[in-house]
Structures are given as C-alpha cells and as structure tokens.
Amino acid sequence: MDDAGMWKRISDQDAEAFEAFYREYASRVRAFLRHSVAGERAAEDVMQNTFTEIWHRPPGFDTQRGTLRAYLFGIARKQAAEWWRRQRPEEELALDDAASRTTETSSLVVDAFNRLGREHRTLLWLREVEGQSYKELATILDIPVGTVRSRLFAAREALRAIWHETPAMKGDR
C-alpha cells in the first residue's frame, strides 16, 4: 500500500492499518531514539508518544511534502527534542553522557558515534541506518537539501575525527 492509501486509513482511524504501521516501524523508531534520548525507558516512552501523536492527530501528514516514513521520524525527532527540553539543563550533559553508556553495544564506531552531538547522531542514524534520502532528511529536519549535504559531511567528519583520536580505534582499523 502506498503512503497516501495508508495515510487515508490512518486518518480514518483504521486501527488495523495503524497497528500494521506500528508493527513495521516501532522497533526502528525506538532504535533511533535510543541514540536521541537518554536511556532505554526514555526511548520506549518517546517512541510510544510518537505513535500516539500520529494516531491522535492524523491531519498532520501532507503527502506532497514527503514520505510517511520521513513524517514518522520527523515526529520522533521532535518528540526527542521535547523530551530533552523537559530535562533539567544542568543534567543534560550527564544524561547525554549516560545515553552513550546505556547502549548495549561495544562497537568502537558506535562508542564514537555516541560521543557526537545529538544533531549529528540524528542525521547520521537517519541516513546510514534508515536510509533516508536527502529530500526526506530535509523534511524531517526542516532544512534545505543543500544544508543536509553539508551537515552530513560535518557529521561524518566529526565521527571520523573521534574515531581517529582514540588509540584503540586506530589499531582497530
């Protein structure tokens, strides 16, 4: 089913269609959010909020502006930003650091990834893992496509720099 068809069913509050949409994307959104907010519980909560928001406010998606998948991750990103806004500012740094420690992986690249700023993490995850196109990223981040290109480059360079500065990582390469 194409995005327009799926969206019509969601807009009509078709619970079966929305459940299928949820099943397809929920775990991917949660994985994305693990690197966008601090902690497993927060990622789960924000993921649930994301789908709840879409279910409750179906007029929000415009098929002319991008894909349903981009819309979904755009909402998830905004929910993550909102989550951070609700945290105590002085705790943010610590929480951000905690986010990097709570991942279940021990990959050196992922360790380096978790040391990036949140915006860079968001961008790289959506591009590399979710395979979002530049146009979709522009929709999600609400920035021009040209800015997507330059920010992706900056994010990759930042990741590469962190990777290179870690002695163990040099050896690993």
Partner: peptide
Amino acid sequence: AYVAMGAELRRIASMETGAAAPQRTWK
C-alpha cells in the same frame, strides 16, 4: 572510512531493532 562507519552503524542497528516493540491496542 565513511563507508565503514555506515556499515558498522547498520550492523549495530540490526541488533538493536531485533526486539519487537510492545503490542498496543489502537482504539
């Protein structure tokens, strides 16, 4: 390096997305 970084992120992501999200009922 860029390609290797992306491949590694995808490898990790494939492990992280493995667990199904909890079931919900949409009314």
